[in-house]
Design a protein around this nucleic acid. Sequence first.
DNA 1: AATCTATCCAACCGCTTTTAA
DNA 2: GTTAAAAGCGGTTGGATAGAT
Length: 317
Amino acid sequence: MAKQSCCHKKKLRRGLWSPEEDEKLMNHIAKYGHGCWSSVPKLAGLERCGKSCRLRWINYLRPDLKRGTFSQEEEDLIIHLHSLLGNKWSQIAAQLPGRTDNEVKNFWNSYIKKRLRERGIDPTTHQPLADPAATGAAAACRAVFGDVADLIPPAAPLADPPMPPPPLDGVKLPLDWPLVAGGAAPLPSLSRSSCYGFDMDALQQHCVPVPAAPVVASASSSSTLTSMAAEAEHHCNAAGAGGLPWLELGPNAVAEAAGHVDSYAGALDELRWSEYFDGAFQAAASQQGALQQQAGQCVYKDDVAVHFDVHGLSNWC
DNA sequence: AATCTATCCAACCGCTTTTAA
DNA sequence: GTTAAAAGCGGTTGGATAGAT
């Protein structure tokens, strides 16, 4: 006989949350924080299990959620991180400020997977599909899409030993680290709160604000390349100063600055790699010098540092 | 207008890991 | 060191909705 969930055992409410329930939960957390989730439903006057409350808060009610459609750079970063981490949705979501693992997972399953298949790329392996027809499509699209899995050469030995992981596992950098001009971004708009009338000041005391993701114009013109190069340079600088503001450092942290630089590359759906790397991006990237060795070319996968050569990318064109 | 189909996404389920007693 | 509870995570399901027929 199948094991019943905690909600079944206690005959608690299940299914979609009503606005009244949301309000109760929001107001409770605004006043007291969530504390122990198992006690939240009782204290908040909800007929839900603590697990359900936690999920509702994390995936929907948290005021620092970004919501809305994923940007091109977010999409590229997800693809890149998935090629490195697989279905580690929480780790992937941790690199996307304001996004939840559930949201990233849904986006992957409903959109990215399909798109990769259309391009002849196996979404699981990030390699061209076995189907000959699809393989041709993959080859055709690679020049403009850039299969992110290929950013990592297979077991390519490095001239220099990899940098050891920083001894900072679990340590978060200040959230107001200057990622973009103007410093920490404001909290996203909170339209829901106006409907429910929460005490948002109190609520935000229990929430960690996240800076906005770097804004990149769509890469459809040469002028945007210049701004992208500037952005890439800025990110390299931020990484060189100790990391990006929303990255958690340590052996399990991934994609550091390299991921961001690559995300820009991935956004260049309709551009040639040669134009990109021989142009503005390379000019900016070349200024980083040794920095790339540390941040721009190293990500961690299964606690192992993975390095790759950014300059080698231009050879794929 | 009615029905069918596909898609999206919130929520659930069950397992694993972490924490506290 | 052991155990139970809590928290976290990834896979899956089911309802709502949009678009097609």
